[in-house]
Write a protein that binds this DNA or RNA. Structure first.
Lengths: 114, 114
DNA sequence: GTTGTATTCAACCGAAAGGTTGATCAAGGG
DNA sequence: CCCTTGATCAACCTTTCGGTTGAATACAAC
């Protein structure tokens, strides 16, 4: 896990979620697919701006897009979110293990990580 | 969970982890506290730059600092990492619930989230 | 007090992010 | 074949980010 080839993808994912607007988009998509226009409405920004956000999320593979006539609904890629929790938990668990003095667990988890 | 008052903090946390250098710092700190100089060494950037990164992480409360004479060791605040996984899992689980058609779980999780 | 070591502050710089407006493209409906 | 709708492309602007160098601070050792 946390393979070298996924490094850039992990980077894009964290980068993507750094923006609150994009997190809100993720939140919205968790309730089902939506088009750019639908996503743009609750925000006070233009569709073009939303479209850019989608592209960022798409490059991070956090969302995918299908085609439905002229609409292009955006879908959440929940699986990719797991890569983030995996990265975080990696270090969260190490620290917790240290607090408890579980050296065996610690040594297993803490070798050559990013 | 995901209280309104934590909103800014969550923002800073994602923002902080968006930078690969700062993620590497987190990784290093998971193996124990370190000073700015120690953290700067493996990188090819100046200590001043690292100091700035630490400040960003500190404002996100992902790390804390103590004082040891003129040294100011940085410690990982593993507890804060949980806030991130909590946010992510919130939506990851919603999607997984949808795939399984677990509407009850879905309705419970998906009301007025950020 | 002077020197030395660890860290931070301040000013600056180039690159990238997030936003806008205006033009353009794709797909259907009349 | 227009014309509308949904979405993207392109150019531009402003702010923020990550980095630098150089001066300043804090603390301890001598």
């Amino acid at each position: 896990m946390t393979d070298r080839s996924d490094e850039a993808l992990l980077d894009r994912a964290f980068m993507a979620l750094a923006d609150p607007a994009r997190r809100r988009i993720i939140a919205r998509l968790s309730r089902g697919p939506a088009t750019v226009n639908e996503l743009a409405e609750p925000f006070e920004i233009t569709k073009q701006a939303v479209s850019k956000h989608i592209q960022v999320l798409e490059q991070a593979e956090l969302v995918t897009r299908t085609r439905d006539a002229q609409r292009r609904p955006v879908h959440l890629n929940a699986a990719r979110l797991e890569a983030l929790t995996a990265w975080i938990d990696q270090y969260r668990l190490v620290r917790e293990a240290q607090y408890r003095g579980l050296d065996a667990v610690l040594n297993h988890l803490s070798k050559d990580k990013t």
